[in-house]
């Protein structure tokens, strides 16, 4: 167990990194820089989980977020190319400072409230946060939501595939939007051009 001074220094550095990278995530104009900000934010949060002696959760955070989510973001940014850096100009119906000011007020208020909350120091049992304990809980009373999470992830994979695959002929015909709006084909004649991605992309 680290001493309180080490804990304080670690918390200070990691929280500074977390806040700074979160601000960088939402403030850069280029989307790939925002993804790098998110990467450092996730790294600092994994460090904060370690100061809370949630080591397994820190590892899961690194594997799932850095290994899957940030990589997925970078893939999509590469796929979109220059369109990923969509400009932020133009006025909306509501002024932008109104929403952000309200959010900052709520955040400052909640930070003030919770900073005044000082619970008594709870001594951790030595087995707190160990893989044995967390795994015992995960496969004990929480086994049903654990299995349901796999169903959720399967549904998300199928749904993401169905959405990103892109049979949008009906949408194009209905809305008049999209690249083929001027020359719409019936949906039963279109799939060769949709699936093949080119003349040589035959089916195997």
């Amino acid at each position: 167990m680290p001493s309180s001074k080490v804990e304080l220094v670690a918390f200070g550095l990691l929280s500074l990194l977390a806040v700074g990278s979160a601000v960088a995530t939402i403030s850069y104009r280029s989307a790939i820089r925002c993804a790098v900000g998110l990467f450092f934010h996730i790294l600092s949060l994994a460090g904060l989980y370690m100061t809370l002696s949630a080591h397994f959760l820190a590892a899961v955070q690194l594997i799932v977020y850095v290994g899957a989510v940030v990589v997925l973001f970078v893939f999509v940014i590469m796929l979109l190319g220059p369109a990923a850096d969509a400009p932020d100009d133009g006025a909306g119906r509501t002024p932008r400072w109104l929403g952000s000011g309200a959010a900052v007020c709520v955040g400052a208020l909640s930070a003030m409230v919770v900073l005044s909350y000082r619970p008594e120091r709870v001594l951790r049992p030595p087995s707190y946060g160990t893989l044995r304990e967390v795994g015992g809980y995960l496969f004990g009373p929480a086994v049903l939501p654990f299995e349901l999470a796999s169903v959720l992830l399967t549904a998300a994979v199928v749904g993401a595939f169905a959405v990103a695959r892109g049979h949008h002929d009906k949408v194009r015909l209905a809305t008049g939007l999209g690249p083929d709006a001027n020359n719409p084909l019936p949906s039963d004649q279109a799939p060769a051009a949709e699936d093949g991605e080119g003349p040589s992309g035959g089916r195997s």
Partner: peptide, 21 residues
Amino acid sequence: TVTLGHYLALASVLFTTGAVG
């Protein structure tokens, strides 16, 4: 020492950053 309030305040700041973004 670092208490629960510090972590919750940090989390509220991070949540606010995300909400503003």
